[in-house]
Design a binder for these strands. Structure first.
Length: 446
RNA sequence: CGGGGCGUAGCGCAGCCUGGUAGCGCAUCUGCUUUGGGAGCAGAGGGUCGCAGGUUCGAAUCCUGCCGCCCCGACCA
C-alpha cells in the first residue's frame, strides 16, 4: 500500500477522552473512531489488525477440528425465556421490539442459540463430539464503557461451544480449547496465562481465564513466577489425543495462578516467597465447562449406544477479539507509539523514502516495494512529500515491526537501512539483501 | 447506579466569573525557501459556541430544561 493512497488519519495530539495508552494510541494511529460510548468504527488500519487477529483465531480453532459457523447478532427473546436468562440477565442486555411488537435482543452471547441449533439437528451420539464456534459482534450495555476497545459495549468475540456425550469427552474439549488458546495468543506475540477463574452464577468447577499481564489491567492477579517461563512454542500436538491434551493442561495450570476472585492466601503462601507475584492483568479469553444445564433446558438430547436419551455435556469458550488489540498494545508499546508483534502487524514493513521526487530514491523504493510484494509480503510505502521526521514519527506511531529507510546518502554507498521498531537497532545492507532478510523474518508467520 | 467534570473549527485549548460583531496552537490549502527524527516565512479557508426555551436593546458568556461525552466508585469479557 502506498501511504499517499491510504486512509490513515493520524493525530499528533492525544484526544482528551482517552486515558489509557492503548486507547490513546489507537486513536492517534487512526485505527478507530468513537461513534457513541463504547461503540467504534474501525478505520482501515485498525480493521486490518482486527482481521489479522480474527484470522489467527480461525486458523487455530480449525486446526483443532472446531467448525466455524455464523449466528446472527439479533436474537428473539423466546430462546432466552426458555433458558431463564431473559429475566436473569438484567439491563446489560439490549432489548427492543420489532415492528410486530416481538421482543428482540442484541445478543450478548450465544449459548441458547447454538444449543437450539444442535438440539434441532443432532439426535445421535454418533454425531459427537461436536464443537461449533463463530466470531461475531456482541453487545453488552455496560453501565460504564471505558478504555477504548478494551471495554466497549459493542465488541467482537469468538465464542465456541462443545457438545459431548460424556463429561470426560467434554473435559477433553475443555483441554483442547486450552491448547488452542495457548497457541493463538503466542502467535499474537502475547503471553496469556491461564488462571483459575470464578465460575460465576452458572456454576461449575472447570473454568480458566487467560490473562495478559499489563499495568493497566482491570483484574488483580496472583501467580507463581515459574508460570511465566512456560511457552507452548511450535511443538506438535494431536488434538484427538486425550492424554496429550490433558498433559498440556496440567503443565500450564499446575502452578498457582489466580485472579483476585479466586485468590487463596494460604495456597499462595505455600509458594517460595521469591516466586510470589502479584500484578494486574487483562482478561482476553475464558474457557468453561458447565455440564448439561443448557442442553436440559433447551432439549439438546441424543440417543446413546444403549438407546437412552441423554442431555449433552457442554462448555463454552470465548476469546475477546476486539479487546485483544488493546491488550496487545498495552503489552507492546513505547513512548513513540505501538510496537506490533510480527504475527498481527497490519503491514509487514514500512518503506520510508527520504527524498520523494529524487529519481534514485524513488526508483529504489519502487524496487523494494515490488520486491517485498513478490515475496508475499505487504509493505506500507510512505511516498508522501513529507520531511524525514514526520515520516519516521508516523511509522513509529503505527508500529510496523520493520522499517526500510531509503535515502540519497545510503544509496550512494549502495545500501538501505533496516530498522527494528522494537529494539531501534539499524543495519545497513543492499536492497535485495533487505528484501531477503524480511522474507526470512516472516517465513512461517505471514 | 452514586459522586465529580466537560461540550467553542478535524485535534488540543483560551474566552464565560464581570453580556457588546469568536480567538490561539496543531492540522488543511497556496507560494517561496528548506529536506536523515514532527522545518521557516508570507498568505488563505474552515465554527448552527451540544440542543431547546428564557432574561436582555444585545447571550459562547446569565437562568431553566434536555442531550452527549469523560473521570472516580460499584459492576463486567
Amino acid at each position: 500500500m502506498r501511504l499517499s493512497r491510504y486512509f490513515l488519519p493520524v493525530l499528533k495530539e492525544t484526544p482528551a477522552e482517552a486515558q489509557i495508552v492503548s486507547h490513546r494510541l489507537m486513536l492517534r494511529a487512526g485505527m478507530i473512531r468513537q461513534q457513541a460510548a463504547g461503540i467504534y468504527s474501525w478505520l482501515p488500519l485498525g480493521y486490518k489488525v482486527l482481521k489479522r487477529i480474527e484470522q489467527i483465531v480461525h486458523e487455530e480453532q480449525q486446526k483443532a477440528g472446531h467448525l466455524p459457523l455464523l449466528m446472527p447478532t439479533l436474537q428473539s427473546a423466546e430462546l432466552w425465556q426458555k433458558s431463564g436468562r431473559y429475566d436473569a440477565y438484567g439491563p446489560e442486555m439490549l432489548r427492543f421490539t420489532d415492528r410486530h411488537d416481538r421482543e428482540m435482543l442484541y445478543g450478548p452471547t450465544n449459548e441458547e442459540m447454538i444449543t437450539d441449533i444442535v438440539a434441532a439437528y443432532v439426535s445421535s451420539y454418533k454425531a459427537l463430539p461436536l464443537t461449533l464456534y463463530h466470531i461475531q459482534w456482541k453487545f453488552r450495555d455496560e453501565v460504564r464503557p471505558r478504555f477504548g476497545v478494551m471495554r466497549g459495549r459493542e465488541f467482537l468475540m469468538k465464542d465456541g461451544y462443545n457438545f459431548d456425550l460424556t463429561k470426560e469427552d467434554a473435559l477433553h474439549a475443555y483441554n483442547r480449547h486450552l491448547v488452542t488458546y495457548l497457541r493463538t495468543y503466542e502467535r499474537m506475540g502475547l503471553q496469556a496465562i491461564p488462571m483459575r477463574a470464578d465460575s460465576g452464577p452458572i456454576g461449575g468447577d472447570y473454568t480458566h481465564e487467560f490473562l495478559v499481564l499489563a499495568e493497566t489491567g482491570e483484574s488483580e492477579v496472583f501467580y507463581d513466577s515459574e508460570i511465566t517461563e512456560l511457552t507452548f512454542g511450535d511443538r506438535a500436538i494431536d488434538y484427538d489425543d486425550k492424554a496429550e491434551c490433558q498433559a498440556v493442561l496440567e503443565e500450564f495450570t499446575s502452578r498457582y495462578a489466580r485472579t483476585d476472585e479466586t485468590h487463596d492466601e494460604a495456597a499462595f503462601g505455600e509458594i517460595p516467597e521469591e516466586r510470589r507475584r502479584s500484578a494486574r492483568g487483562i482478561e482476553v479469553g475464558q474457557i468453561f465447562y458447565f455440564g448439561t444445564e443448557y442442553s436440559e433446558k433447551l432439549g439438546a438430547m441424543v440417543t446413546d449406544a444403549e438407546g437412552q436419551k441423554v442431555p449433552l455435556h457442554m462448555g463454552s469458550h470465548g476469546i475477546g477479539v476486539s479487546r485483544l488489540l488493546g491488550a496487545i498494545i498495552e503489552a507492546s508499546h513505547d513512548d513513540k507509539g505501538i510496537i506490533w508483534p510480527e504475527g498481527v502487524t497490519p503491514f509487514h514493513a514500512g518503506i520510508v523514502n527520504l527524498r520523494q521526487g529524487d529519481a534514485a530514491t524513488d526508483a529504489a523504493c519502487e524496487q523494494l516495494y515490488a520486491g517485498l510484494q513478490a515475496k508475499g509480503l505487504e509493505p506500507l510505502y510512505d511516498d508522501r512529500d513529507e520531511r524525514a521526521g514526520g515520516k519516521f514519527a508516523t511509522m513509529d506511531l503505527i508500529g510496523l515491526p520493520w522499517r526500510v529507510t531509503v535515502g540519497p546518502r545510503g544509496l550512494e554507498k549502495g545500501v538501505v537501512e533496516l530498522t527494528s521498531r522494537k529494539t531501534g537497532e539499524s543495519e545497513e545492507m543492499g536492497l535485495e539483501a533487505a528484501i531477503d532478510r524480511l522474507a526470512q523474518i516472516y517465513e512461517g508467520i505471514a
